[in-house]
């Protein structure tokens, strides 16, 4: 009934990688942002596959609902003349070196991953209910939650302060 998990995972991985690679290659910033939204949705699908639906919904709410909006807004505010103006890589040499560096990083990571042999471990953990997550957040992780709240409030105020126009001393008087 439920399809075997591995092909599903492979499909999700292929889709996420394809959209991410396309997003990083496209020259139109808005196209990149929209494609990256798709990548974030596929990451949410991955969380669903891994059995953490709460995480998947949080990912969609935050990334699709908030971060993508802020990014698109910033794109529109900072490209006054033509939002579709392409952004090229700084130079061919730079693009090549970037590809080489990231390719090298991937090679090292992939080598490390493939070295690792799975140990026959416990059966996969049960899907955590929202109640478990809530109990953990209100119990052992309470200070982490509070600190995150403080950070978010501080960044919200800070972002508003940074982005609000600077009041220049009035020169006309």
């Amino acid at each position: 009934m439920i399809p075997p998990p591995l092909p599903v995972l492979a499909a999700i991985a292929a889709a996420a990688l394809l959209t991410a690679a396309l997003a990083m290659m496209l020259r139109n910033l808005i196209h990149s942002a929209l494609l990256l939204v798709l990548t974030w949705v596929f990451v949410a699908f991955f969380y669903l596959w891994a059995g953490a639906p709460f995480l998947a919904f949080a990912q969609v709410v935050v990334y699709v609902g908030a971060i993508s909006m802020v990014v698109l807004f910033a794109v529109l505010l900072t490209r006054r003349h033509d939002p579709a103006k392409p952004t090229r890589p700084a130079s061919l040499a730079r693009a090549c070196s970037a590809l080489a560096v990231s390719g090298g990083a991937f090679a090292v990571l992939a080598w490390a991953v493939l070295q690792w042999r799975p140990v026959p471990g416990n059966p996969p953990p049960a899907e955590p209910s929202v109640a478990t997550l809530g109990a953990a957040l209100a119990g052992p992780q309470l200070h982490a939650l509070l600190i995150t709240g403080v950070i978010l409030t501080a960044t919200l105020i800070g972002a508003a302060l940074i982005a609000s126009p600077v009041e220049k001393p009035d020169s006309s008087q």
Partner: peptide, 11 residues
């Protein structure tokens, strides 16, 4: 869903 409210906002 266990997290139905969150799902609604995600959709």
């Amino acid at each position: 869903l266990d997290a139905g409210l969150l799902y609604f906002f995600a959709a």
